[in-house]
Design a protein around this nucleic acid. Structure first.
Lengths: 133, 133
DNA sequence: CGGGATCCAAAAGGATACTG
DNA sequence: CAGTATCCTTTTGGATCCCG
């Protein structure tokens, strides 16, 4: 009787995977995390961000900031002066993201070695797939 | 004298952002998290995964599994029978990722509403940017 | 059954010139 | 100063078809 399900994906998987994808959809961009962290340390001006984040282009900085603003992670404030002046700051929503992100970061730091080893093994051998008897 | 730095990116930002990107580079794919979670519940065969994950193509299932295997998150076992039989299981490395991922998921579930509201506001107005006097 | 090989569409990202 | 507009390259993902 447990059949007749429209959603094929396992519900228990869905319950975790779906929210996780929601987060990744917002902070998964190449520059998103760096920008969030930079902005979390206080109001930052556009040019300051551009200089603080090595390698980012004007285009990607603007685009990423707009997306973060749209998702309520960043607030953009325009000062009507000349020359124009704009600053960006993190919202509480963004600040609450810090600890979860730090959790991920810890995992990465702890296991950087294991991952590199796994890669080396995989790339060396023809893929390390076990052959069962 | 604090100049002459080659790495322009703020070191304190780098220390968190870089590890986070390492994680995202491995689980940021469209299907990675779903596959990790599915495989964490015990050995699963290729076809079972394909049926359990709604909408995935053969190609992406294979590709994502290969990448996860390469990074040491999944173990692939081949049984030399006919017809061929293969199963996948999660490694400890992958299991240690569960809690950090759950942390992200909680954030997403708690703030789903705020994000939707922020988006609605942004999309409604011409961008909600504050104008300072 | 469990893929690999191929081809194609869409999205992400980069370089850079121009502007209020 | 803080972008926008434009053009281009790279990456990602999807649709098959084929094969041992």
């Amino acid at each position: 009787m447990s059949q007749g399900n429209t959603a094929v994906t396992d519900p228990e998987i869905h319950a975790v995977a779906c929210p996780v994808r929601e987060v990744i959809d917002r902070v998964g961009g190449k520059w998103s995390v760096q920008i969030i962290l930079a902005v979390m340390r206080g109001p930052v001006r556009f040019t300051a961000l551009e200089r603080r984040i090595d390698g980012i282009s004007r285009r990607m900085l603007t685009l990423t900031l707009r997306n973060l603003e749209r998702d309520g992670l960043v607030v953009r404030t325009v000062y009507p002066t000349v020359p124009p002046r704009v600053d960006y700051r993190a919202t509480d929503l963004a600040r609450e993201l810090h600890d979860p992100l730090e959790g991920l970061a810890e995992w990465a730091r702890r296991n950087r070695g294991s991952i590199a080893a796994a890669r080396a093994a995989y790339d060396a051998g023809s893929g390390s797939s076990a052959i069962a008897s």
